[in-house]
Amino acid sequence: MEDVSALKMLSASEPELEAFSDDEWRGLILYLVDLLQTHFGGRIVTESLENAWMGGIGFCLYISNANESPNTPMSWKGILGATTVDGKLHVSLTVFFYSGDKRLVAKLGEGGMDGRGGKEFAEYVLDSSEEGVCRWKLLDWFDDVYGEYDNF
Results as ranks from 00 to 15, higher is better:
residue 4 V to R: 08
residue 5 S to R: 15
residue 8 K to P: 01
residue 8 K to I: 00
residue 9 M to N: 08
residue 13 S to I: 04
residue 14 E to W: 04
residue 19 A to M: 08
residue 27 G to H: 10
residue 31 Y to A: 14
residue 35 L to G: 06
residue 35 L to D: 01
residue 40 F to W: 06
residue 41 G to I: 00
residue 42 G to W: 00
residue 43 R to W: 09
residue 44 I to V: 13
residue 46 T to G: 01
residue 49 L to S: 12
residue 50 E to V: 15
residue 56 G to F: 03
residue 59 F to M: 09
residue 60 C to Y: 04
residue 65 N to M: 10
residue 67 N to Y: 02
residue 69 S to C: 15
residue 69 S to K: 08
residue 71 N to Y: 10
residue 72 T to I: 05
residue 75 S to H: 03
residue 75 S to Q: 03
residue 77 K to Y: 00
residue 78 G to D: 14
residue 86 D to N: 12
residue 87 G to W: 13
residue 87 G to H: 05
residue 90 H to L: 10
residue 91 V to I: 14
residue 92 S to C: 12
residue 93 L to R: 03
residue 93 L to Q: 05
residue 94 T to Y: 12
residue 95 V to N: 00
residue 95 V to A: 14
residue 98 Y to M: 08
residue 102 K to H: 08
residue 103 R to F: 00
residue 107 K to H: 06
residue 112 G to W: 00
residue 112 G to R: 02
residue 113 M to A: 15
residue 115 G to P: 01
residue 117 G to A: 11
residue 121 F to Y: 12
residue 124 Y to M: 02
residue 128 S to N: 09
residue 131 E to D: 09
residue 132 G to Y: 07
residue 133 V to F: 07
residue 135 R to T: 14
residue 137 K to W: 04
residue 138 L to E: 09
residue 141 W to Q: 15
residue 144 D to L: 03
residue 147 G to H: 15
residue 151 N to G: 06
